[in-house]
Amino acid sequence: MNKQRKTNLIFWLFLAPVLFTFIMVIVIPFFMGIFYSFTNWSSSARADSTLQFVGLANFKNSFQDPSFIYSFIITSLYTVLNVLFINAVALILALVVTSRLKLKNIYRVGFFIPNLIGGLVLGYIWQFIFNNAIPALGNIIPVLDFLSNPDNLVLSKVGSSVTALVIVGTWQYAGYIMMIYVAAIEGVPESLFEAATIDGANEFQKFKNITVPMVAQAFTITMFLTLVQSFKQFDVNVSLTAGGPSAIFRGTPLFGTELLSLNIYNTAFVKNMLAEGQARAVVFFVVLVVISVIQVSINKKKEVEL
């Protein structure tokens, strides 16, 4: 066995466990899922449960369902808000913790910690804050009296519930994105700033003309991560709002904050239409791929190489 062969063997040996897992839990289910989306699969022991091809019926039914269309709209809205908020907050935090600040490492850890808490737990914690803590605050402080009025409960209206989802999403994810910005900002050569200072540039000019172009690469990554994360939001959605409160869309009462993942889940497991849920997941996948490819290619154009 020559050296080349030995290296090859070791390479495959180390790769095998990961490859095996990847094929078993990602690749095979992915193609099975696409297959099932064209059938009447229901994973139950119904009397008439033979597997049949139904063509594009699942896709057709999905697009005729107001709740699916509504989910698309509300998810897009949520994604836009969430991407903007997370990135704005993360960038500000990153600038703060890279400045000459005392205890900046402690702040970095502090901002990052929410990301380590599971989304379900986070959702229930914030549900308690919105439903109990905030109204209680209104009872204690007379000026904030309006908070204790049940009409002003954050989670009782669709608009404010989406805002609540964005707040929790930002709280959870901004620390993580901040870390990426911090790494990028610290990678900008100090000499550029010194040169700019000698040329008489002020802080804002330095930020606009040096920091932003130099961290453009990080923008590509963070925008991609936040976009995908927001689009796929599920756990916080389930635990914080459970899809509610209700809304009326095209004359049909439905769940007002049911994001796409939750809509797919409800289609599969509450409506008992697993194949149709799978079809929606395929649509979801295609849309997500298209949007993220567009986003990455736009961002790539703005990157600069030194």
């Binding site: 409160p245 209700s246 809304a247 009462p253 439905l254 769940f255 409800n266 509450v270």
Partner: peptide, 13 residues
């Protein structure tokens, strides 16, 4: 769960 529950919720709100 998906048809009636939102109607009750609308009425309650």
């Amino acid at each position: 769960d998906l048809t009636l529950a939102p109607i009750y919720n609308q009425f309650a709100n």
